[in-house]
Amino acid sequence: MDRYAQGEDGAFGQVYDELAPRLYGYLLRQTRSRERAEDLVQQTFLRIHRARGHFVAGSAVTPWAFAIARRLLIDGLRRGRREVIGLDEDENPAAGLDAGSGRGPNASVWGASEVDPEAWAHANELARTLDHELAHLPENQRVAFELVKQEGLSLREAAAVLGTTVAAVKLRAHRAYLALRIALGERAENLGDPDDAKAEPQAPRPPTRPTRSTPSAEQEMPR
């Protein structure tokens, strides 16, 4: 991002490649609509492009990008473009899983073409249940949980994105975690308590079923 802010236009592709999958995943979860998520990703990057000259050298671009995306999402909702809660097959974020790979869902991310159907079905059901329970949490708890646990933002970064304090983010994420634990029962063993989250930036944690959109932990965060 630094190079892009200095005028190296070619670096924008790299910024996009680093940020777009995470932003898209986040926005898809928020909107439950591919079309809207794509629209918001596009708007977010256009805003980043427009404000690139203001980019503070050495600062983290990820929280900034998430904050812009969140702002655009909220503005969109305020304008009456309400998110679609019910998912049909076409709008199901899972429907496009590994689209085009010609293999079973998540075959590529599990590193094998042979996927245990039973394990896949179990993981799929658990993921659906988690998404369902997340959707029923208060908005502030859900967003805090998603930013910290699903997007891999540090507590400090999530607090900056949400315009609140680290303690508030920690509390909200912890409450979400407790609610999910109660809802999911013993299946929630792998959730991980947000209290364990670090205040400093960290690489996004790969989900049980890692997605193509999740950068690997080794990838350096765009700056």
Binding site: D9, F12, G13, Y16, D17, A20, P21, Y24, G25, L28, R29, A37, E38, V41, Q42, F45, L46, H49, R50, N92, P93, A94, G96, L97, D98, A99, G100, P105, N106, V109, A123, L126, A127, R128, L130, D131, K149, Q150, N190, L191, G192, R205, P206, P207, T208, R209, P210, T211, R212, S213
Partner: peptide, 26 residues
């Protein structure tokens, strides 16, 4: 680790569209 509804990444056409848009608006 968190099991979540997985999804494909953003379509490549979106990347092309955004890069084209930014190229046209310095």
């Amino acid at each position: 680790m968190i099991p979540t509804m997985a999804h494909a990444g953003p379509p490549s056409a979106l990347r092309d569209r955004i890069l084209a848009a930014t190229g046209q608006a310095p």
